[in-house]
Design a protein around this nucleic acid. Sequence first.
RNA 1: AGAGAGUUGGGUGAGUGGCUUAAACCAGCAGUUUGCUAAACUGUCGUACGUGUCAAAGCGUACCGGGGGUUCGAAUCCCCCACUCUCUACCA
Length: 425
Amino acid sequence: MLQVTFIRENFEKAAQGLEKRNIREAQSLLRQVVQLDDERKGIQLQRDQLQAEANSISKSIGQLMRSGNHAEAEKVKSRTAEIKQQTKELETAYSEKELELTQLLYTLPNIPHESVPTGKSAEDNETIFTHGNLPELSESEKLPHWELIKKYDIIDFELGVKISGAGFPVYKGKGARLQRALVNFFLDEAQKAGYMEIQPPILVNEDSGYGTGQLPDKEGQMYFATEDNLYLIPTAEVPITNIYRNEILQEDQLPIKNVGFTPCFRREAGSWGAHVRGLNRLHQFDKVEIVHISRPDKSYAALEEMSTYVQSLLKKLELPYRVLRLCGGDMGFTSALTYDMEVFSAAQERWLEVSSVSNFETYQANRLKLRFRDENKKTNLAHTLNGSALALPRIVAAILENNQHADGIKMPSVLIPYLGFEWIQ
RNA sequence: AGAGAGUUGGGUGAGUGGCUUAAACCAGCAGUUUGCUAAACUGUCGUACGUGUCAAAGCGUACCGGGGGUUCGAAUCCCCCACUCUCUACCA
């Protein structure tokens, strides 16, 4: 969530930022924040002073008791009743005010970076880079991936329905090998690029959900194990970033670069439609995720590094792609700047999002209490960033569609050492 | 899953209702001494919010696994929860 001190010191900038996200009444919402915080401070001052008085009375009672002056002690005691009552009231008022403030802050998204274009929807996103030529398939060799996987019997949706339900495909034979090859390729590349590999839990507790911002708003998106109060992760971002929750890092530990492979689980309630056939949207899918923890002054350089890295993967896989800078209306709630990487899927003739790389600045770190100690030994909130590198299903869809021939599908050469075969036939 | 024992600062670890402002030691940091290293000595050493200030120092409040309660006063007593260890059971 946003920091109140930031809002106080950058009121106009914050208001303009929220307006870029099409939030009406941004000024008035921010004024409310400042006012609630003022009220909170006022109550805290009264409460603390009263508490100080109570503490000193208690101490004097202790001294009287020790010196055996019980009568005097009893006398002083009687005076504490009123203070106690008042303290209790102030304590309650303080908690209420703090809760009210927090709840208001939870409703405010991150302030977009100045380079974020204004806009309402995905149509207003800015294409900043395009790479590769769009493949031209003949009409006879233009099967969408949901037909190709049947033709070659490599991914089975019906079987998934039998075992689990819609959106839980079963990967078979060369389909399963392709999954494993991609995961290993992505992890090896990340290691070469200086990332430390993490294998995190894929069930997380409530605190972790709040830390990275999935809670309180998006609990409907996560599967929940009620018996144990644990959520199935929607992305490895959650467990990996929460490693650093409530930590004060030393400056020489930064930047932190982690990579993790996990399955991801999303309920996707109510988001099914014409465009989500086949591998385009699933309840369970595999993803390799990269996470950076950075000094504030280095975080945008880190974002560019991540973007370049993700693009290098797409180039090696020989997939045509484009990079979008998301507009204010399409950007995720917690992000300050997001690049989406989309690959072209030749039979569907659509761009598919395969990675989303974001800088959250201090928005997550504030909830996470993720700080670092700077050269003056002061603690500051760190910046968190993450991105997919990469999400598998749509990559698989594009590889299958773009490389299809009449007699089989040719695998990208970079994967062949991992696969042990060149063609799916 | 059952029984028992635990959870105190970066680490070890004392502390069963008020001289605890959480001892002591180790590690860390700064300094003194010193051919160098080591050692010794001195000092310092938590977080958050508030207050104060140009900034700071200082001061106040809270925090001893988390939450609630008893009390004038809680690390200490009571209740709930989480986690750790040991034994038993089970299991890959």
